[in-house]
């Protein structure tokens, strides 16, 4: 689904990632960990086409990112749900409209999906907040709303960048359970986090693999966590 072949990425200063070869298998559950600044966010951005590798090849759904047009990138985004740590919404629209935004921009009437939307909001426990504006939401509510928005198009892959970075432990657990449920429904999940407790908690619920970025390389971490 997502394949990286000998990929390197450097910012102006120097190389951040180099020689990364990796393939994301359908239905897998991965954690991506490593020290702050190691390149977790960069790695995820390479995975959804927000950055283009300095060298090597990244293929999203069998298409080389470098040869993708801007519209191709937009179409790919509809198949990859992304959740950021500092998730952004359209602050002037109520939560329900924000969650339905991917449907709106892809020309699928939000009206036809009203039942789905309600069910989805229920699932993330935000039904009672449907009319709230994003700035009125708490950190946990924002993360769950972001997850709802990321999955409303029923994407094949969900990439989450520090989804629990701003929320308390209990809320983290709740978000993790939602992600595990999605994985059980067949979605491919990758979560970047440096919260080892979260990884340990996940391992009791799902067969998760842990990738570690260190010294510009991506390694499969042992089962010793």
């Amino acid at each position: 689904m997502i394949e990286l072949d000998n990929v390197a990425y450097s910012y102006g200063g120097g190389e951040l990632l180099s020689g990364i070869t990796f393939g994301l298998q359908p239905g897998s559950f991965h954690f991506l960990t490593g020290p702050s600044g190691a390149g977790k966010t960069t790695f995820l951005k390479l995975c959804y086409g927000a950055l283009i590798a300095t060298s090597g090849e990244v293929r999203l759904f069998d298409q080389d990112v470098r040869s993708m047009t801007r519209d191709d990138v937009a179409m790919t985004r509809r198949r990859v749900g992304v959740v950021h740590q500092d998730v952004q919404f359209l602050d002037h629209l109520p939560l329900a409209d924000n969650v339905a935004l991917p449907l709106t921009v892809s020309g699928r009437g939000a009206l036809d999906e009203a039942a789905n939307l309600k069910e989805l909001l229920n699932w993330v426990g935000l039904n009672h907040r449907a009319d709230a504006l994003p700035p009125e939401l708490s950190g946990g509510e924002r993360q769950r709303a972001a997850l709802a928005r990321a999955v409303i198009m029923s994407p094949d892959i969900i990439l989450a960048d520090e989804p629990t970075g701003n929320i308390d432990w209990e809320m983290s657990q709740r978000l993790l359970r939602l992600l595990v449920e999605l994985n059980k429904m067949g979605k491919t999940i990758m979560i970047a986090t440096h919260d080892l407790a979260l990884i340990r908690a996940a391992k009791t619920q799902v067969q998760a693999r842990v990738l570690r970025i260190a010294n510009r390389q991506l390694q499969l971490a042992g089962a010793d966590l």
């Binding site: 519209d71 937009a74 198009m153």
Partner: peptide, 16 residues
């Protein structure tokens, strides 16, 4: 800028 970034992230095409 934030609106545009959000729209881009959720798969809106440039034309839209």
């Amino acid at each position: 800028a934030q609106v545009i970034a959000v729209l881009r992230l959720v798969g809106a095409r440039d034309t839209y």
